[in-house]
Nucleic acid binder design. Structure first.
Lengths: 205, 205
DNA sequence: ATTTTAATTAATCAAACGTTTAAAAATTTA
DNA sequence: TAAATTTTTAAACGTTTGATTAATTAAAAT
């Protein structure tokens, strides 16, 4: 970090990232962002042509650097059990650092922000289906039942992401502080793989 | 339904429900709602004192009538296996009728809309922990492992709700039309209970 | 029939929004 | 140092927002 490019552009990006994730695109105003970045609104449109443009630059970067690398673990070349534990662990740790990100992404997916969808698809376009192939191999060996990779992926994603999506409700309803919530999601690092593997290893009904 | 109270007030409520869920509170304007209800903006503030007020009335009603009754199934007096299948089935069917509702609820949970949190808590305040007691009884019998009800509830909720939360991404990434998405969530009616029960019936590691 | 109340309309309000301008200050280049 | 370029500032732009007004029509009550 010798570069120390702590210029206004980066400060605006940081403020935008924070406020977009916190309040959503529509509710975070240019004036909010400028004030949070300790500058004025004209500079926001000087460095980025528009609020829309700023949003896309910030999001594309953030998404590509945090979520995608973890999501790709399911296509890594690892033994099934190791892979599932690693996926849940890495995803959980990533989310602990950026807990509001999933809700932000899904929220902005509604309506006219289809360019955001485009970004997500382009990022993950060159995706292989090696996870399905792995499940097929294991099933052929008799190690697990036959299973649809998309269903397994969805279940894993669900169980890891959802507690963060519903964090506010969860903490409020069960009087959790930040520490208790962390304990809750940490203990899921064991439960989620166990649940997934128990299903896969079970004979089909 | 003999009442046929198809007055302006109800038309506004319907329009508001539709637009709030579709675009969120901040992006659905009073003019949108008025136009969609085939009236003018003054009547929106005539029947409801403000947009904020309209939002709360509509949401409280919608939430209490659709989500809560299904969520309470986990505290019904039913055998464990029957209960889990019933919960997943009813929740899925409810969501198929109102697929954007979960994302709407979670989105509005961010930031200053804390009154929404209050509504949710008041609605589910008188909740028993009979599900935990049931799990304890089953564990004492040796039928299942010891399990934290909150973790099981969270996993069930996760796996049912998340596909709807991420519906747009899911459909886009895997080129699903509405029919394919319905097939996808329908087949989860079997997978989710199987996964949950496989975990519960597994000896602890 | 007349009064009173409820419902509806068109027009307008101030505030906040994203964006732009034109001029000043700071920095880089020659 | 002088010229050219980049960065920053304060002020304003035209729209859109939620909300309100005052006048008009419809309905209910007496």
């Amino acid at each position: 970090m010798a570069k120390a490019q702590s210029n206004t552009e980066e400060k605006i990006k940081d403020a935008a990232r924070k406020l977009f994730v916190e309040k959503g695109f529509g509710n975070a105003t240019t004036r909010d962002i400028a004030e949070c970045a300790d500058t004025n609104i004209a500079l926001v449109n000087y460095y980025f042509r528009s609020k829309e443009n700023l949003f896309q630059e910030v999001f594309q970067e953030s998404f590509a650097h945090t979520f995608l690398p973890v999501a790709r673990i399911l296509n890594d070349d690892l033994p099934l059990e190791v892979k599932i534990y690693k996926f849940v662990d890495h995803m959980t740790e990533m989310l602990k650092r950026d807990p509001m990100m999933p809700l932000f992404v899904l929220s902005e997916m509604r309506g006219e922000h289809s360019q955001m969808c485009r970004i997500m698809l382009e990022s993950g376009a060159l995706e292989s289906n090696s996870f399905q192939e792995q499940l097929n191999r294991e099933a052929a060996k008799g190690a697990i039942r036959a299973a649809d990779a998309l269903q397994v992926e969805t279940s894993l994603m669900s169980m890891v992401l959802f507690p963060f999506l519903s964090m506010n409700i969860l903490k409020m309803k069960h009087q959790m502080d930040d520490e208790a919530f962390t304990r809750f999601v940490d203990s899921r690092k064991k439960i989620i793989p166990e649940m997934t593997l128990a299903y896969l290893r079970q004979r089909e009904g």
